[in-house]
């Protein structure tokens, strides 16, 4: 059975790209797309996804703030941050400290992505 994923990204194109990549991987199904942190919180509550892929940089409530809010609602939320600003260490570090399972950077490498997602379901 495929795993339910919520994509949080302000860019329509980027969300579509992620949906395509997850489709290519199989085993994952994007059940919702939120364009900002506030929407993400709402959709998380209504869709109960097993995994959240969240862009770090977004307008309104940014990824870090949204991560904090999501983990407050559900401390066991499985969130992987997506960064198009590779190497911005401090934000990635903050996300990991807060409880993000991992940070993946763009452009995506399919095989690396597969490993990161699989491990997110193994690791505590």
């Amino acid at each position: 059975m495929s795993r339910k994923v919520l994509v949080v990204d302000d860019s329509l194109a980027s969300a579509r790209q992620l949906t395509k990549v997850l489709g290519d991987l199989g085993d994952y199904q994007v059940v919702g797309h939120a364009r900002n942190g506030a929407e993400a919180v709402k959709l998380y509550k209504s869709l109960s996804p097993e995994l959240v892929l969240m862009d770090i940089i977004m307008p309104m409530m940014d990824g870090i703030q949204s991560l904090r809010t999501l983990l407050k609602i559900d401390p066991a939320a499985r969130v992987i941050m997506v960064s198009s600003v590779g190497g911005v260490g401090s934000q990635a570090e903050e996300a990991l400290r807060l409880g993000a399972r991992n940070v993946i950077s763009k452009p995506f490498d399919l095989e690396r992505m597969r490993q990161v997602l699989e491990k997110a379901f193994e690791a505590k």
Binding site: G86, G87, G89, E93, V103, K106, P107, F108, D109
Partner: peptide, 9 residues
């Protein structure tokens, strides 16, 4: 992947 720090990698 893109440009990364070793830690991220």
């Amino acid at each position: 992947m893109g440009i990364q720090f070793f830690g991220e990698f």
